[in-house]
Write a protein that binds this DNA or RNA. Sequence first.
DNA 1: CGTTTGATTGATTCAGGTCAAGAATAGTGG
DNA 2: CCACTATTCTTGACCTGAATCAATCAAACG
Lengths: 232, 232
Amino acid sequence: MQTALTAIDRTFSMPIATENAAPQPRFAAEAAGIGATRSFAKDEEIYAEGDPATRYYKLISGVVRTCKLLTDGRRQIEAFHVAGEIFGIERSAEHRFSAEAVSPVTVIAYRRCPLEVLASSDGPLARQIVATALLNLERAQEHAVLLGRKSAMEKVATFLLDMAERVHHHDDAFDAIELPMARSDIADYLGLTIETVSRTLTQLERDAVIALPAARRNIVLRNKAALRRLNA
Amino acid sequence: MQTALTAIDRTFSMPIATENAAPQPRFAAEAAGIGATRSFAKDEEIYAEGDPATRYYKLISGVVRTCKLLTDGRRQIEAFHVAGEIFGIERSAEHRFSAEAVSPVTVIAYRRCPLEVLASSDGPLARQIVATALLNLERAQEHAVLLGRKSAMEKVATFLLDMAERVHHHDDAFDAIELPMARSDIADYLGLTIETVSRTLTQLERDAVIALPAARRNIVLRNKAALRRLNA
DNA sequence: CGTTTGATTGATTCAGGTCAAGAATAGTGG
DNA sequence: CCACTATTCTTGACCTGAATCAATCAAACG
């Protein structure tokens, strides 16, 4: 994580050397004032907690985490966002969580429209913003249930199923996932420590529910039914 | 503990204590899009998880909890709602949490408008719905941080400050709160057990941070600064 | 008054955290 | 392509905060 704050200043980051094989500049409509494409390196900050919330972001490629730090360094990751999702929607004038690139990321940044416009304009974008806010609310609520009442094993099982579903766009046929995030991200998302996440994954492998290849961020779901049973 | 909540709770509670699960009355008002007043007794269910989400509710008096049960009976309370707040907003066709009256409750039920209408109609109500969804999102996110990363002591401190602020409408002058909910509700909201909630409150009293009168649901905040320090 | 429900307290257990090595992987520069 | 780091991940030993189990205790309520 190098120059954190530069993220926002480089608004129209042309270079895009780090741009993965992802969707490029896009169409004139978007280039013409509606949205600007921007790229971020792994671990780069997209916005910080407390930054003015002047835009929201549509994720074109890569994975983003939104999180908050407590005064003593404890961290809670509120959500992961994958390609196609919108993040950065706020009620107040400031971002209440920071957003960071988990992997190299390309986004389209849209100028934020005030709430009154949002609830009264009838463009498809306004509709999408409202829908996204409600989806994020749903996820945050489900996440609270997980954090408040599930065991470590249940948390990890829920996480694996959820990631598999989102990354494969609800196609249940695939049984392998390539996690873009480190164990520490998983731990801070699930309210656990990295050691517990690791031990739990090892346990699942011993129980033949998953397989952990040498590249430890690849996980093969060998027994989704068992995972679903653990899903509580 | 009778006199406590009644001030707020009784506000509109005319008769209807027994008009339970049968929400028939429905006045011409609702048909006209204005909303119908309904009352619920303590612990009565306003809607259940899985019920069709055909309306949302504005809370006139009393306190409501929205919660979810895991298969084995573990419960997570997602939020408490107090007078003036709107709850029951959903993205999908069904309620994903149940809503129950913590105290006697009066609400106005509004017919739900579809998402497209919400994002395109410009009445003040649509605006309020969107604003409420965003507020609930904020709270759910903050709640996730609490559930995932705070200690029992920090959770209770946060809860007391939060309830004091909401019940007194952000007027910091008051230092006593009359909690409408049982210890079990607090525990299921904070992801703790009732024993831990009780022990933590006792500890706070020993430390002269709060006082616990004979009516145990009244709590006097003797040292808000100390609570804020615990707020992490 | 008993009776019931809710809250507190104490004794004990345990899931998950902490501390401390290692092992494996992925970078990095030569 | 290979040594050489530097991360990241795993594993083990141990500890602890909160859960569980089990009595009381105290209000609230007929």
